[in-house]
Design a protein around this nucleic acid. Sequence first.
DNA 1: GTGAAGGGCCAC
DNA 2: AAACGTGGCCCTTCAC
Length: 589
Amino acid sequence: MEIQFQYVTDADAAERAVEELRREGTLGFDTETTELDPYKGRLRLVQLSTGRNTYVFDVFKFGEDGRAAQGLEPLRELLADASVQKVAHNAKFDQKWVRHHLGCETNGVFDTYLASVLIAAGDSDRRHSLADVAKYFTDIELDKSEQISDWNAGELSPSQLQYAARDAQVMLSLHEQMADRLASDGLTEVAKLEFECLMPIAQMELNGIFLDAERWREQLAKVRVAQSKAADELQDMLSAGVAQASLFGRAEINLDSQAQVTDALINLGVPMPNSTRAWELQPLAEKYPVVGKLLEYRAVQKSMTSFGENILEYIEPKTGRIHADFRQIGAPTGRFSCSNPNLQQIPHDAAYRRCFRATEGKKLVIADYSQIELRILADFSGDENFIKAFESGQDFHSMTASQVFNVKPEDVTAEQRSFAKRLNFGIVYGVGASRFAMMTGLSQTDAENTMRKYFGTYRNLDGYLRESGRSVIDSRVARTASGRMLRLRYDENDRASIASAKRYGVNMPIQGTSADILKRALRLLHDSLAGTSGHLVNIVHDEVMVECDSAEADDIAVKLENAMVAAGGEFVKRVPIKTDVHIADEWSK
DNA sequence: GTGAAGGGCCAC
DNA sequence: AAACGTGGCCCTTCAC
C-alpha cells in the first residue's frame, strides 16, 4: 500500500512541515543512515509522521554538515521538545545519530522496542525487531528489504522514500496498541523510567571512555611474560604423567582444553572433582603443585585473552575513545548489559582500571551506591533491626555481626564480620546452608546454626523472603518498585525447578529495583549536567562515572551524589540511601 | 568454514 | 534433597 509522504529538501518546506507536525501530540519517528555507527557514517533521512501524513527530511539536501544547517533549526527544536511525543523503535539508535549529526537531543520518546521487552516480561522466546513487534501487536507485515539499501545515493529511489516513510508511519498504530498494553500490564511507570533513560545512555555511548592504550600495553606485556612462564611450567608438570613424554620429548598438551588437562591430571594421580572450576580445584592446590600451577595459568590466560590486545581494537579513531554498546534492559531484572567491549567486567585490579582515565585537564567523578541491594531488601522487608543497622550509619557488616552474634559493635571479631558479610551478600541471592558452609568453611551444622541465628535476629526479613517466595510461586509474577515485571515459568512437579524459580523470583525485585534506581538517577543526572562540562562515561550496575573539567569536579561531585540519592529516595522510603563519591584521575576506588 | 553448546571466569 | 542472582567473552568441541 502506498503511503502519503512529503519529501522535505529545503528550509521553507522544513519550516512548513514542522508547523504541521507540531499540531500533533504524538509523532512516528525514524531515521535512515549510511552506516550503523554514527562515527563512521552520515545521517541521511529523518522521518516524522502524523499518521495521515509523513515528512521525510533529506539531511543531505541541507548541506555537508547537518549540525551547521540553519534550515534544520525548526526540526531540531521539534525533536528536542519533550512535549511532542516521538514514537520510535530502538530510539537510542536514532537519538545518537541525531545528537551527533544534527546537534540536538531527541526528547519525549516512546520506544516500541523497550515497550515490547517490558511487556514480554522475561519471555526469551519473544523477538523484538520492528517486524516482529509490528506483527505481534498490529498484525502488520513489514518488508525490511530496503533497510540495507544504499542511503548514500545522490538521489534516493521512490521505493526507498516509500520505505522510509512507512517505518515512521507504522509507529503510530503500534504506539496505540502498546500504550494500552503497558497500562493494562501495570507497566506505564517503568516504561516512562526506561524512555527517560534513553537519551542519557545515547549520550554516554557517544561520549565514550578514554583508555590509555600505552598503559594497557605495558600491563599486557607483563601478563604475556607471566603467561608464557606459567604455560611452560604447567606443560612440563603435566607431561610428567604422559607416557610418550620420554620417547618423543615433551608431549604437548593443549592447556586450554579442559578434556586434555583433566586426562593429564588423572594420569598424575590427582583425585579429580566434578569439574575443573577454580573453586573446586583450589583445595587440591596445596597437596598437588600442578593444580596450583594450572590455576595460575588459567588466571593469566584469562587476563591475556579477555583483557588483552583485542580491547584496543575498540578505540574509535575519530575520538580516540571506546564507545561500548549498552543494552538498557540487558537482563529481565532490568539490569544493563554491556558489550563490544564489556566495560562491566573489567577486572577490579588497579593494573587494569588505572588504564581508564580522564584526559588532560579533566577529572573522573566516580560514585557508587553503598549496599544498595541490601538497603532495598531492608526497605521491602520493613525489618526494624535490619533498618537500624543502616540508620546507625556505621559499618553495615559489623552492625549485623553485632546483632547476629549478640556482641557490642566494638567487640565484633574479624571472623564474625566476615561471616555476616558473606551472609548479607548471599541472602540477596537466596543462598542455602550448604553453599554458605562451602564458602565459609563452616560445617553444615555450624552454617545452619549461623543462618538460624541470622534469621532469628531479622524475623521480618525472614518473613518477607518466605512470603515473597510463596507469592512468586503462587502468582508466577515478580515485580520491582517501579512495576517492572517478570513472568516465571517452572515445572510444578519438579522441586528443583520450583526452588530455582523461587530464588529467581525473590532476587528479581531486589536486583531490579536497584536497576530502577540507577536509571532514574541517570535521568536526573543528565538534566543536572546540562550546561556543565560533565559527561557520563560509564556505568556498572551501582556505579556511575562522569568526566568533567578539573575546575568543575567538586560541583559535579555534588550534582552526581544528589541525583543518585534523590533517585534512591523515590523508591526506597524507610532506609537512607548512601553513595560514596570521589574525584580521581583514573578509574579507581 | 561456521555456528551452537558447554565449560570456565571476569564484573556487580 | 538440595547446592547463589544477573550478564559477556574466550576457548574447545562437535555437528553440519
